[in-house]
C-alpha cells in the first residue's frame, strides 16, 4: 500500500464521517480540524475507522499525528512499513 493509497483511504473515511466536506481541497500540512471543521468526536471516529480498516490499533497517544493529512500518511506508512 503506497502513500497515495493511504492518503485516499484517510480522505474516504473523513468523507464518511463528514459528508459535507466532500470536495473541499485540503493540503497536506493543513490542520483538518480547522480546514474541515472537524471536532474531537470526528477525529475519534477517524481513528476508529482507520484502525478497523488497517487491522491494527492506533494508540490514543498517536491520534494527534492524524490531524494533518501529511502527518497521517507519514504515520500510517511508518506503522505499515516494518511488516
Amino acid at each position: 500500500m503506497n502513500r497515495e493509497d493511504l492518503r485516499q483511504m484517510i480522505l474516504e473515511e473523513i468523507s464518511a464521517i463528514a459528508p459535507e466536506t466532500d470536495g473541499v481541497a485540503v493540503d497536506d500540512s493543513e490542520d483538518l480540524r480547522e480546514a474541515l471543521d472537524l471536532d474531537s468526536m470526528d477525529i475519534f471516529n477517524l481513528v476508529v475507522a482507520l484502525s478497523q480498516r488497517l487491522g491494527f490499533d492506533i494508540p490514543d497517544a498517536d491520534a494527534p499525528r492524524l490531524i494533518t493529512l501529511g502527518g497521517g500518511v507519514d504515520y500510517l506508512a511508518g506503522r505499515i512499513a516494518p511488516r
Partner: peptide
Amino acid sequence: LDAYNAAHPPQERLLLG
C-alpha cells in the same frame, strides 16, 4: 483518561466530553 484510552482499543476509548 490517557491511561484508560491506552488500555482500550480505539472504539472503546473515551473523550473528555
